[in-house]
Amino acid sequence: MSKRTLSIPHLGRVEGHGGIYVRIEDDEVREVNLEVYEGSRYYEALLRGKHVDDVQGIITRVCAICSASHTVAALMALEDALGITVSTRTHTLRGLLLLGSTIESHALHIFALALPDFFHVPSVLELAASHPREVTFGLKLKQLGNRIQEGSVDVPSTRSTRASEGSAASRTSASCAPSGRNWRRRSNPWPARSS
């Protein structure tokens, strides 16, 4: 009789903390223990006594990767409870948010979390060394998902893009804070909300 145990004390490339123990006898899995050591945050209890306005801001922080889903789910639950019907526009915008989230999290999952296994490398960073083009594409895809969620995808031929192309003031950016090329490129320095 052959006995084997598989033990992964800390599962890598997943969000959250956990370990897995598998006991195998005669090629038969006898015991599987999944241990989750993630600390409890008790979000359900944190929500108690809060105003409905605050729920979304709290719930979206349950998980960083699927924050958009948590946001939309929480809003829908509240709307159901309060008997609110949202406009088609709101509904569509939420759909866009979720699509952005899907693009981002799937690209993250495929390229950064799952794919390294198939190439027998520890992480996306090593994968980038052997397959730079593919990884760069994956990251760009992920970035697109993020930019959809952030509402910072450039829509051509609107006033805002025209406004940001020329003036001395706008070229040096409107706010004190944005810094780093990354930030600047992704955000429209003159929010076109006036007029």
Binding site: S167, A168, A169, T172, S173, A174, S175, C176, A177, S179
Partner: peptide
């Protein structure tokens, strides 16, 4: 002043 001394200049 925001035109002459933008809030953020390099």
């Amino acid at each position: 002043k925001k035109l002459l001394l933008p809030p953020r200049t390099v």
